[in-house]
Design a protein around this nucleic acid. Structure first.
Lengths: 229, 229, 229, 229
DNA sequence: AATGAATGAGCCTTCATTCAT
DNA sequence: GATGAATGAAGGCTCATTCAT
């Protein structure tokens, strides 16, 4: 639930979120944003220095809010299994990507995120460092533990991308699979359901990878002698 | 490898692919496209009726070419396992999404595709019906067989999206994970490596799902008696 | 008399001359120019690349026209005195600076010239080289002959600036001395009258300078002995 | 030497002098002036009622200061020759026009003056009456005496403009003749040197005019008889 | 006395498009 | 078939100014 801002700055940011998400950066116009915000057309330049500045600040603010709202890790009790950590991570990530305004069918934040991922603007650079990299680091460690000591960094990367890809796809490709009637993301409880599925699917996938790693090594160890058969 | 067109029409299409992929629909300008194509600024309107017409035709032509080039199914010998069919599907899909111009690092086609998925233009509608739906149908059937008879349509959908999500993510999020140094998609043989990974990961994932389905049913069947423990 | 152009380019140039002269570069607006020219507001950008390009081309065209129209030297018969050459020069220069549209009281060209001299824009650089320098060279030689062999380059420069200053002042300070009722530049024959005056005044001035130079040298030559007295 | 003001008003005036001189009235912006002055952007309107008011006050203050600093006449001892009065006048006028800030190569005051002469703003009207007219009156009388009783008002005006023109030209056309390497106004003692030259040149010029007047009258008187030859 | 926020008007420029050739 | 010239609409932005504090 998003509290409607009363300051001019806040109203512009709210409106910008809507318009940029719907139209993209080039498609959006300052005029449209100001009309929606109910402010003067010069206010964007006054408060943000221009269209680009507004976009930058909006992204930052959006990412900041959403990342604070849905953490992907926390102070787990000692001995918590990596599988449980993964479950928590997946639910957090999906919430970040699928979160939407109460009452509105338009997930403006994830839409904007998806745009940036498909066509990263210069704004992206700082965001990746500030928001994405730490998140990826957390997941990387979890997966390393799940895959076990034989996994190379490349193995871990592959699995990480497999897991993240599933989550992102829900956020980005919504227009596609909505059209194909595969899934309705507006159902209540859908995020939790998807989190359970992604967790289970990915754990299964990683188990397969791990098994393969171990077999490969075992096979190598027996090379020269007879294989197990 | 893309044969350079010599007709005005062809030169415009080539240039449009580059510019639209880089700038998006609103960001691209007819002038820029015509400059790159070396044609008159009025030629776009003459040949395609306008910017929208050009975009529509470009998408169609791009999808058409790429879908023909990389099939996701074929006349398998009778008795081919669904796992083998899946492997073929995954490699085809990844090729479609990661294909790039020979010698150029810019995967203009998948970039354009990614854009359309993140922000589908009106052009999308016909494309989904013509290209995406049949592809999805093929995969749906393969997964149905792999998951076994106990899987509901929803289960199949979930797994389908999990698999497709992994593949798309490679095509769309390249700017992100390139920045994070997770993966370099320019390595030779990378598509095949990814295909092997996605196939194995997904088979593992689906195996997990299937096992769970069977256990759940079994547990229900034994309800009243003792669980396995 | 200025032939009204019929091409869009020409109409814009005509209008620009009027507006830039009246308002200065920053004060003038493209809209006003296009309104006066009866063309679309985008035509300036199409034909001249922008406001600056239009200004540059206008200055060039104006200078070119006016310098061709009023020469300051010609093929004099052998033995023509430097005084006669000077008279010709002065009349030519004054015509350049005071020339005005038939029927209009606004001397747009000299006004524009005056502006450039008081606040030279980047456009000025090429104009000085192309137009002003050769003119100055002609005058420099005439004055050198009038002042005689004892004149240093500095003496010549001083006299040159004295002469040119008189002429320019008529072109630039018109708003001032019109207000002070000193002179009405709209009288017929005024340019010829001024030319006669400036020529006579300057010849007198230079005669004074020359006399002084010769006396000084003579005095030096007699230093130690008696002066002529 | 200009004392740096500490009051907001004074700081704005100082800054305005710099900016208006460099950019002209339309080219200068209130924001730029306030930035340089280190004051709030609303301060110009608060203190001067607007951009025009600031400009008016600045001109007034500038003219007032400079005219007080360099007089063009004084209480001469009885019997002082008009030639001596002229020499004093010329030095005073040149000082007014060429005066520049200590240590800075930019003569902001004369630049501004030159602008006003080339393109007088409405502000000019009052300034002409208050400052220019009295100065011109002084010179008019001096020249009347030098030219002698046969000179008409028109003769006097011509000579006056010839003299004033030389002086103004140094102040206004500096960018031109600096580019042409005719003169470097930054040399020490240059103003005195120029004053000597202008005085001598003009006295020579007026002597020529006077001689001509007398010859003309004499010739008329002798009409019917022989001319002097 | 002074200011930060906000504004309406207007700026130059760029856009996709049209039209006569 | 193809194009150079021209255009109306709209773009982001800057301006001097105002107003509540």
């Amino acid at each position: 639930m998003e509290a409607k801002k009363t300051s001019t700055r806040g109203k512009i940011l709210d409106a910008a979120g809507e318009i940029f998400a719907r139209e993209g950066f080039s498609g959006a116009t300052v005029r449209e944003i100001c009309d929606l915000a109910g402010t003067n057309i010069a206010s964007v330049n006054y408060h943000f220095g221009g269209k680009v500045g507004l976009y930058r600040e909006l992204c930052h603010s959006l990412f900041s809010t959403i990342f604070d709202q849905f953490p992907v890790t926390r102070d787990f009790p000692k001995g918590t299994s990596p599988e449980d950590r993964l479950a928590f991570f997946v639910e957090g990530l999906l919430n970040r990507l699928l979160e939407q305004q109460a009452g509105e069918g338009i997930p403006k934040k994830s839409q904007l995120l998806a745009r940036e991922l498909a066509a990263p603007s210069p704004v992206m650079d700082s965001l990746v460092d500030e928001f994405v990299r730490p998140t990826a680091g957390v997941l990387f460690e979890i997966i390393r533990q799940i895959l076990g000591p034989r996994a190379s960094e490349r193995d871990i990367s592959h699995c990480l991308l497999s897991l993240v890809g599933q989550c992102f796809y829900y956020g980005m490709a919504r227009p596609i699979f909505t059209r194909l009637n595969f899934l309705d993301l507006n159902e209540p409880g859908i995020v939790e359901e998807l989190a359970r599925h992604v967790t289970r699917f990915s754990l299964g996938g990683m188990a397969g990878i791990r098994r393969n790693l171990e077999n490969t090594v075992a096979a190598k160890a027996c090379s020269g002698g007879k294989g197990i058969g």
